[in-house]
Amino acid sequence: MLKHKKIVLFCVAVVLVLFTLTFFTAVHWTIFLLLFLVWLGLTAWGSFDIRLNYFTKAYSSKPNSTTKEIALTFDDGPHEMTEKVLDLLKKFNVKATFFCIGKQIENNPELFKRIISDGHLIGNHSYSHSENFGFFSSQKVVDEITKTNKLVEQLSGIKMNFFRPPFGVTNPMISKAVSETKHLVVGWNIRSLDTVYEDENTIFERVKNKIKPGGIILLHDTSQKSVNVLERLLLFLKSENYSIVAVDELLNLSAYEN
């Protein structure tokens, strides 16, 4: 059973117990309020931290790994900066995983094809990457995933199994949608925040300090600062004798349908 269902059942059980107690003794209303706030806090945390598997199973790392392997992932492309990212990856002979937005694929079809021809893995990152994605109905989420999958299949013949929700947000609607489309949700456990911080040193140090075997790093192929951080990161991982692999190899999962 998913974690949020367990929490809901637990909270309902506590409410019933408290309500029953009101027939025998005074139960202050603040106890009910506190219980509600705890539930609300857990729900919010579970929605925004994909690693918790709160609403749906997400593959965010290779737990308990002792092998110095790590996966590099890039979100929100293909973008004009993707070419620089691909050039760097080729220079270091590294394979990565790109979670692509449907609209961006339409805008940059040749770059998208280069990602594949260079031997990198691709995954679904929705069609629109709307800021309101977390409020979409399950059917609208299905439509976004399906539209991008069809677009990719038309351009490359590839049927993607991996899906990464925009912003890493999960909820019951997204959980229902991925269950219907039968996609595997891929998260991360090393978040660079390269779309939040402006200082390259801050971004690099944040990632470097979280490096450990079996990790999945989240970067974005959408800015020059991320490209600069990537070069430093590739040099650091090489110095630490890490093997950089695609997500399917790290997790031993099939990225594409046969």
Rank of each mutant, 00 (worst) to 15 (best):
A13H: 06
A13K: 06
V14H: 03
V14N: 04
V15S: 05
V15N: 02
V17Q: 02
V17G: 07
F19V: 09
F19N: 09
T20P: 04
L21W: 01
L21E: 05
T22A: 06
F23K: 13
F23W: 13
F24H: 10
F24Q: 02
F24I: 12
A26D: 10
V27D: 01
V27F: 06
V27R: 00
H28Q: 11
H28D: 13
H28N: 15
H28W: 11
W29Y: 12
I31T: 12
I31G: 02
I31A: 11
F32G: 03
F32P: 05
L33E: 00
L33D: 02
L33S: 11
L34T: 13
L35E: 03
L35Y: 00
F36N: 01
F36P: 01
F36S: 09
F36M: 13
L37Y: 12
V38Y: 02
W39D: 06
W39L: 15
L42I: 12
L42Y: 07
L42P: 04
L42E: 12
T43Y: 08
A44P: 00
W45Q: 12
G46K: 04
G46D: 09
G46I: 07
G46E: 05
F48C: 11
F48G: 04
F48R: 08
D49E: 14
I50V: 14
R51Y: 04
R51N: 09
L52P: 00
L52V: 07
N53T: 11
Y54A: 10
T56I: 15
T56L: 04
T56H: 07
K57A: 11
K57L: 13
A58E: 05
A58D: 01
Y59R: 08
Y59V: 07
Y59D: 08
S60E: 02
S61E: 14
K62L: 15
K62F: 10
K62T: 05
K62N: 10
N64W: 06
S65D: 13
S65K: 02
T66G: 06
T66Y: 07
T67R: 13
T67W: 00
T67F: 05
K68W: 09
K68Q: 15
E69A: 09
E69M: 10
E69R: 15
I70D: 00
A71V: 06
A71H: 03
A71P: 02
L72A: 05
T73K: 04
T73I: 12
F74R: 02
F74E: 06
P78V: 13
H79V: 10
E80T: 14
E80L: 14
T82Q: 08
T82H: 05
K84Q: 15
K84G: 06
L86N: 01
L86Y: 08
L86Q: 03
L86S: 02
D87S: 15
D87R: 13
K90W: 03
K90V: 10
K91S: 11
K91I: 12
K91Q: 14
K91M: 08
K91N: 13
F92N: 13
N93I: 07
N93K: 15
N93W: 03
N93M: 04
K95I: 06
A96R: 01
A96H: 01
A96E: 00
A96I: 04
T97E: 02
F98W: 07
F98T: 08
F98I: 11
F99P: 03
F99V: 02
F99I: 10
C100D: 06
C100Y: 00
C100K: 01
